[in-house]
Design a protein around this nucleic acid. Structure first.
Length: 271
DNA sequence: AAATGAACCTGTTTGC
DNA sequence: TGCAAACAGGTTCATT
């Protein structure tokens, strides 16, 4: 489900709902999701200080300098509800707050995963150690991307989705960014001019920023912490639009499979 | 080294 | 109508 914009939208929704709240109890309805769940019972009595984000990870920061790291996989959702709301289908974890609400985690496919890590060790953790820069930071720039692409024969789309290169760009936003930049998803990364890579950097930034502003993309099951959908999917120009006319040149959008994932592109506009 | 495919799960859509 | 195959926002591991 979630790429960087969706995780960011969830983060910004949760932070004001949780900061300052104390955990009064925890219930796990299964022992593991993608990996075994950490011992969440030790959160009891701790206070949420902030909810941050790195890449597609949500970072729940507690007052005792512990961070609960949570990846949503494909279908993970967090909701803050009244404690007496009935348990939903696929609800796996429930964290009770001392003000009569609860933070609930749902995940149909159970690809999500979590860990409890001392805050100062976060960047040393295997999940974080080898991550590339945030796409909206100054570290993601044309010089950097050019160095990443140098000599690479693989397709640019795979490189864009490689978290070691840049984080947060998934299948949807890779397709949309490449379309805006006019670059074919199968083009060898090492054979793109610096000028076009510069355009790509700007397009990635722009697409992600617009998507955050629109509240993310709801395809089937993405919803905010308050249960509302995002609207960026109305702005998709190629993703999921195989056979429809290109918004720029009216040639039908094509679909191809790269590394097991669908890629959507316009053969008229992208080279 | 770098690229592809399978695996992890469940639900929905598509095609015969 | 029914049933099976294909497909879905992500990541990791094994295999070329």
């Amino acid at each position: 489900m979630p790429e960087l914009p969706e995780v960011e939208v969830i983060r910004s929704g949760l932070a004001p709902l949780l900061s300052g709240c104390e955990v009064s109890g925890v219930l796990c309805f299964r022992e593991s999701l993608r990996y075994p769940l950490p011992d969440l019972l030790c959160l009891k009595g701790r206070q949420f200080r902030n909810v941050a984000r790195r890449a597609k990870y949500l970072l729940f920061e507690f007052d005792d300098e512990m961070t609960l790291v949570w990846h949503l996989g494909m279908t993970g959702q967090f909701h803050v509800l009244d404690a007496n709301e009935p348990r939903q289908k696929h609800e796996h974890v429930r964290i009770d707050l001392n003000d009569g609400r609860k933070l609930v985690y749902r995940d149909v496919r159970r690809f999500g995963y979590a860990a409890l890590i001392p805050s100062d060790e976060l960047l040393l953790h295997p999940w974080f150690r080898s991550l590339g820069p945030e796409p909206l930071s100054d570290d993601f720039n044309v010089q950097y991307l050019r160095d990443c692409c140098r000599g690479r024969k693989g397709p640019i789309k795979s490189l864009l989705m490689d978290n070691g290169v840049v984080v947060g760009v998934g299948n949807i936003y890779a397709a949309e960014s490449l379309f805006r930049a006019g670059i074919h998803p199968a083009r060898a990364a090492g054979r793109i001019s610096e000028m076009r890579l510069g355009r790509l950097v700007n397009c990635v930034r722009k697409v992600l920023t617009e998507a955050i502003a629109a509240g993310g993309s709801s395809i089937s099951d993405f919803v905010h912490a308050d249960g509302k959908p995002g609207y960026f999917s109305h702005n998709f120009q190629v993703y999921g639009r195989e056979g429809n006319p290109c918004p720029l040149c009216a040639v039908p959008i094509k679909r191809m499979v790269q590394a097991g994932r669908s890629s959507f592109y316009c053969s008229g506009c992208q080279h």
